[in-house]
Structures are given as structure tokens and as C-alpha cells.
């Protein structure tokens, strides 16, 4: 069971940055291409499709330093969602996107890709609870 959790863990955190010598869509495609041996062409197409789902197709060819914090966060989120039966672990989203006023945009993005992951867990300090609309623990 613990082994499964370990395999499903898919962190979204500033401690787990994007690979800077690869474009945004390749960062997303890498997970399926490596773990499931998905042909690279197919993995790329899937990554582009998912970026498009979040309205971010235009950033596909940008690399990490050229992304805004928000774009970087969503690319990290999609990369995490690529893990099979992903248990997405988002670590302090407001630290990653400083200009984020409330959690609604992230929730909307999570809803758009809810077919891709098994569960999503958000970790933040208790004093940030208000920003999440008082939900969760």
C-alpha cells in the first residue's frame, strides 16, 4: 500500500522545479514517455492537448525562465497529473503564485483535469485557511 502511495505521489512544489532545458510541453510529456514508454509523438500531443484544456497552448514552447509564476504552476500541475493514478500534492500554492488572490482559479483548473488524477491534497499553513474560503483542514 505504502509502495503504491509512493508511486502515485505527484508533487507540485517550488522544491520540485521544471527542467529548464526543456520546453513546457516536454516537461509534461516526459512523465508518460519515461514511465509508460508512451511514444514521444503521442506524449507531446497529449501534453499540448492538456495545455490547451487550461487555455495555455501558447506557452507550450516556452522554457521555465520564460514562464510567469502562474503559468509555471499550471505546467507543474499538468506534469504531476501525468503520473498514473496521481495523488497530486500541492505545496503552498500561494507561495508559488504570489499574485493569486483566492484559490478559485486553481480549483477551476483542477476541475478541468479531474479525469487525470486520483486525488489532490493541498498543504499550506493554517493561517492561510481564509484564502481557501475556509474549506479543508
Amino acid at each position: 500500500m505504502t509502495q503504491n502511495y509512493r508511486l502515485q505521489a505527484a508533487p507540485v512544489s517550488s522544491d520540485v522545479p521544471l527542467i529548464s532545458n526543456q520546453e513546457a510541453y516536454l516537461n509534461i510529456a516526459l512523465i508518460k514517455a519515461y514511465h509508460e514508454n508512451m511514444p514521444m509523438r503521442e506524449a507531446r500531443r497529449l501534453a499540448l492537448e492538456l495545455l490547451d484544456r487550461l487555455g495555455l497552448a501558447h506557452i507550450a514552447l516556452r522554457r521555465n525562465p520564460a514562464l510567469t509564476p502562474e503559468e509555471r504552476f499550471y505546467v507543474m500541475l499538468l506534469r504531476a497529473a501525468m503520473v498514473r493514478d496521481a495523488r497530486i500534492l500541492i505545496d503552498q500554492p500561494f507561495k508559488m503564485i504570489p499574485q493569486l488572490k483566492d484559490f478559485a482559479p486553481v480549483m477551476a483548473a483542477l476541475k478541468k483535469i479531474d479525469d487525470l488524477y486520483f486525488s489532490c491534497h493541498i498543504y499550506d499553513y493554517s493561517w492561510m485557511k481564509e484564502k481557501y474560503g475556509g474549506a479543508g483542514s
Binding site: 508511486l7 505527484a10 520540485v16 529548464s20
Partner: peptide, 25 residues
């Protein structure tokens, strides 16, 4: 240089976190 930069940027740790073998990849 590429490897040293990846190490400094914690990108190697990223690969390990996503269970991507550094030797293989």
C-alpha cells in the same frame, strides 16, 4: 555545465522525485 546547473537548480532532485532514473535518462 548543464549537469552542474541542473544540480544547482534542484532539477536532478525533480527527476528523482518523479522516479526518473538519472542514469537512464
Amino acid at each position: 555545465t548543464e549537469m552542474a546547473v541542473m544540480k544547482v537548480n534542484r532539477e536532478i532532485k525533480t527527476l528523482e522525485t518523479f522516479r526518473i532514473d538519472v542514469i537512464d535518462y
